[in-house]
Simulated scan of single mutants.
Amino acid sequence: MNTEKTVYVVIGGTSGIGAALSQQLESENAIVHVASRKSGLDISDEQSVYHYFETIGAFDHLIVTAGSYAPAGKVVDVEVSQAKYAFDTKFWGAVNAAKHGARYIKKGGSISLTSGMLSRKVVANTYVKAAINAAIEATTKVLAKELAPIRVNAVSPGLTKTEAYQGMNEGDRNAMYERTQSSLPVGKVGEASDVAKAYLLLIQNSYMTGAVIDVDGGALLG
């Protein structure tokens, strides 16, 4: 009987979708390594990422959910330095993780990245998020070819109730949730646990690579 434990690395796993996924992955047959800026890992720093994977060693599945922040606003108003900072964290951070994590991923393993619906839903004042998410989706497909037989996929969440919106005024936040709820075909705003299930699918289904899974309540339908 094979008693070897499955080892997961969840980067961005201390809050939001990553934390929900980490909980769903936990079992007596699993070891779940969770890392984020809170735990001291800066994924925009390639050396930091390189050394982090050295400390983990061989593992099975890498999931990157870090980097939800990006400045909103018109292109004429957004500080390019802030836009670059967001790219450094979410896009280049994902690339750093894939680059250095791939060396340690065992046979049958996978990498799951995180984009977002703004990659394909056109909304004014969101060019930074749109560009980052589109770049991640395009790169996911290239990495699926380059890193094969490691499988590389992405999850594209819609609006999800997480700590990412804690900084908003409570009234504004609730109004945003209500607007979204009334506009979505499913009639609800996503929970972190809803989105986490998509990563489980990508991890468990050995016939999926280069895929982008939309978990957005139907937001892309119009």
Rank of each mutant, 00 (worst) to 15 (best):
M1C: 07
T6P: 02
G13K: 00
G13R: 01
S15I: 06
G16A: 04
I17A: 00
I17N: 01
A20W: 00
A20S: 12
E28G: 04
A30F: 01
V34I: 15
S36Q: 11
R37S: 11
S39A: 10
L41S: 06
D42I: 09
D42H: 13
I43Y: 05
I43C: 11
I43W: 03
S44T: 09
D45W: 07
E46S: 14
Q47M: 06
V49G: 05
Y50L: 13
Y50G: 05
Y52R: 04
D60R: 03
H61K: 07
A66E: 04
S68Y: 10
Y69T: 09
P71D: 10
P71F: 13
P71G: 14
V75K: 05
V76L: 12
V80G: 02
Q82W: 04
K84I: 13
K84P: 02
Y85D: 12
Y85T: 13
A86G: 08
A86T: 08
A86N: 08
F87G: 03
K90N: 06
F91G: 00
A97E: 01
A98R: 02
G101Q: 04
A102W: 08
K107F: 09
G109M: 08
I111C: 03
I111L: 06
S112I: 10
S112T: 14
G116I: 08
M117Q: 15
K121P: 05
V122I: 12
V123S: 15
N125M: 07
N125S: 15
V128Q: 07
V128R: 04
V128W: 03
A131S: 15
A131Q: 12
I132L: 13
A134P: 05
E137S: 13
A138D: 09
K141W: 09
K141S: 12
V142A: 12
R151A: 05
R151Y: 10
V152R: 01
N153S: 12
A154N: 05
V155A: 00
P157E: 04
P157I: 01
G158Q: 07
L159F: 12
A164P: 07
Y165S: 15
D172H: 08
M176R: 09
R179C: 07
T180I: 08
P185E: 12
P185Q: 11
G187Q: 15
G187F: 12
K188W: 14
G190D: 07
S193F: 04
V195Q: 02
A196K: 00
L200P: 01
I203P: 01
N205L: 07
A211S: 13
A211F: 05
A219G: 10
A219H: 14
L220T: 07
